[in-house]
Design a protein around this nucleic acid. Structure first.
Lengths: 158, 158
DNA sequence: TTAAGATAGTCTCATTTGCAACCATCTAAA
DNA sequence: TTTAGATGGTTGCAAATGAGACTATCTTAA
């Protein structure tokens, strides 16, 4: 008779763990800065990369639906955390980048989030953290989730 | 200057990985059997445990909101995949269990899902899979995500 | 007993998010 | 050129889901 223990089933465990970790982090960016996850992803992408980039690029990098990114961009512009400039080469697209204010918020937020991540992973030894990252990497790789420096074709999931 | 590479940030990676793995699995239970995630979680919990259990118990085990479970239970009863019997000891609660039909679906579904899980993890060696499971376990443990045989008090996240 | 508080489950409401249609613009081929 | 198809971005709509009110029932203590 077939049986499946949910608590040993990796897909379920990943879901639950991701939800829990997100909840733990959201205290930092939601409660403190009024950002939701898509907004945070936009900031994170713009803050990390030096050049301005398009909404489409952010959507591909973060594997977030373009309409979700579009809404996040609107909100962030309303809050003057990011700005966009027309792209002369292709007038369909806009180049997005952090404003001074957005950069300041980013600089303030990052150390907090890194500290949270460290807290969450503090139950592992340094070696275990390394191993964990490597294993995640292997799985991401086989699921074709790896993103290089260039944008990758969005493979619309299912 | 503070920086954070999203692709190296574990919370982000977990989110993305969980979403991708869920999408890969949903082909099995959504497309083929018309189940959504909460419904699948109810079936999985009932199928794994031998005794009937309450909706509350399922909510706690799977860390899913009770209203979500309530809706899934309604749908599954409409489809005659589960049934509920009044609990004489406590008339607020119902004991839920699979019907013959529900059990049959469960038996058919489980091997498919296990095969999918195996596919996803096939990029790891047997030892790596073991390590990965152990590391997940440690993190779950420190986040208090571990569920024993008995129900655990729901710590309403944030 | 009775009353206060806890708990199981349902339901309504608001929010979030994916989908798909849509517009503007670009590209490539006739 | 002109036209067909692809692409960047926005928006309306519908489905999913969490929060919390609500009912019914249980428990505990006065």
């Amino acid at each position: 008779m077939a049986k499946l223990d949910l608590f040993k089933f990796v897909p379920f465990r990943l879901n639950r763990l991701a939800a829990e970790v997100s909840a733990a982090l959201s205290g930092e960016y939601r409660a403190r800065y009024g950002l939701d996850i898509p907004e945070w992803r936009v900031l994170a992408t713009l803050g990390f990369r030096d050049e301005a980039c398009s909404a489409q690029y952010i959507a591909q990098c973060t594997r977030t639906h373009k309409s979700t990114i579009s809404r996040a961009v609107t909100t962030l512009m309303d809050r003057a955390l990011i700005e966009r400039v027309a792209n002369a080469d292709d007038r369909r697209e806009f180049r997005l980048r952090l404003t001074i204010r957005g950069r300041a918020l980013y600089e303030e937020l990052i150390p907090r989030l890194l500290r949270k991540e460290r807290d969450i992973l503090s139950c592992l030894t340094a070696q275990e953290r390394k191993d964990f990252a490597a294993l995640l990497g292997k799985i991401e790789c086989s699921l074709d989730l790896v993103q290089g420096r260039e944008a990758v074709q969005q493979t619309e999931a299912y």
